[in-house]
Amino acid sequence: MKRLSTFNVTSLTFGFAFLYLPMLLLVIYSFNSSRLVTVWAGFSTQWYGELLRDEAFLSAAWITIKVAVMSSTLATILGTMAAYVLVNSGKFFGRTLFSGMIYAPLVMPEVITGLSLLLLFIGIGLDRGILTIVLAHTTFAMCFVSVVVSSRLVSFDRSLEEAALDLGCTRFDAFRLVTLPIIAPAVISGWLLAFTLSLDDLVIASFVSGPSSTTLPIKIWSSVRLGVTPEINALSTLMIGIVTIGVITASLISKRSAVRAQKDAQAAERSA
């Protein structure tokens, strides 16, 4: 029988305190009425108000969301295709290069990815703007999507697709009607990952964005370099809040469906 020793409890407590205290402080001090961010002067929501009146922040947020939606959708399509090819296509010309190009961006320092894409865009004369950010984000996010999706496809029972073909499906129909619905959770989490990566990216966006396409991380970066500001605290709190709600909801849903699956399995045993 496993038992948590004092050592285990201590390391877990301190570990999670280390992970969460900084964010907790951020959240608390976003409600501070003083502009001096480390001195508590009373509760206030004024910074949220100021944040929402700040045109520059709002437009940066809007651009970021547009870029994230476009690039994560494109990345999901391309990444799923790439995963399908990697898992199912056996040997083809240049396969090693292909899988290398899928895995390399995962470990490539962002500064290099950003620099190389910028040099490409300049070389072909593409004006920097939303389009170039979308292209850049799609490229590195599709690799993450393809890793997520291919880890699901590896355990996918190939005979399901064969059964669909056997029952009269074309290859495309078999994918659309059988494979895709079954791997959908992985595709969705791939999309969410791509969305988050795009939302989060500062370095690559700094290279490939133009003056009219400042994203939220770039905006945050330029104010943060000057020090801690309560508006940024408020913005951080909003972002942390959204993510927390999202992750908790997702884990509750998956927990509930796991419980339901277990109940179904038990019921099936009884009905046998």
């Binding site: 964010m23 001090y29 988050t196 989060d200 945050i220 801690v228 972002m239 942390i240």
Partner: peptide, 13 residues
């Protein structure tokens, strides 16, 4: 899942 930038920023304070 939360912003990398914000997590680093939190330590400034």
């Amino acid at each position: 899942w939360t912003s990398f930038l914000i997590r680093v920023y939190a330590w400034i304070g």
